[in-house]
């Protein structure tokens, strides 16, 4: 129902792999739900067993993933859109991971935020622009410090939100 370049289909092979992963997830959910205590003594009937609802979800995931897998086998050979800019996505994910797992909680929040914004902006603009790199780096540093300071001030003092 929507338009745009993003609508290119996913390749049949990617769908098959997704179906396999989801099938495994669904089976794991069913196995885990089955192993949950049933609390038959407490409830008298066992109808409040914690495993019923997740077991139902797991069964539906298995069923739907199976259908997805069968469909992808029938449509084998369908080519998907060419891979998008993997480098940028990987860089974003890596920087986000270092910031959220490595920096937050170990450094004061304003410093962690400043370092993250600086390195993010610097990395992407370094790749994009050949000239004026020194100026870009300086701008990134200023942006990082401003963000760290402003965010810390606004949320801690005005919104009274606790920061990591």
């Amino acid at each position: 129902m929507s338009s745009g370049a993003d609508d290119a289909p996913v390749s049949a092979r990617a769908d098959l792999a997704t179906a396999a992963v989801l099938l495994a997830l669904g089976i794991a959910i069913i196995v885990e739900s089955w192993g949950m205590p049933r609390f038959v003594v407490q409830s008298g009937t066992g109808l409040t067993a914690p495993g019923i609802v997740p077991g139902f979800h797991g069964a539906m995931i298995v069923l739907l993933a199976g259908l997805l897998g069968l469909r992808s086998l029938r449509q084998a050979g369908t080519k998907g859109a060419p891979a998008t800019d993997v480098g940028s996505v990987a860089l974003t994910a890596a920087l986000g991971l270092i910031y959220a797992v490595g920096l937050i909680g170990r450094l004061p929040f304003w410093l962690a935020a400043a370092l993250f914004v600086f390195s993010f902006t610097a990395c992407f603009e370094w790749r994009a622009s050949a000239g004026r790199r020194v100026r870009r780096l300086a701008e990134a540093a200023v942006l990082g410090l401003l963000t760290g300071g402003a965010v810390t001030y606004v949320f801690e003092r005005i919104f009274l939100v606790r920061l990591p």
């Binding site: 993250f116 914004v117 992407f124 606790r162 990591p164």
Partner: peptide, 25 residues
């Protein structure tokens, strides 16, 4: 490249703010 890191910083605050658990991040 300048807007998105700021949004990401706001996301981490947003995730952390309610229960103050790093686990939520």
């Amino acid at each position: 490249s300048r807007l998105m890191p700021i949004v990401f910083v706001l996301c981490t605050i947003g995730a952390y703010a309610i229960t103050s658990r790093l686990f939520d991040v």
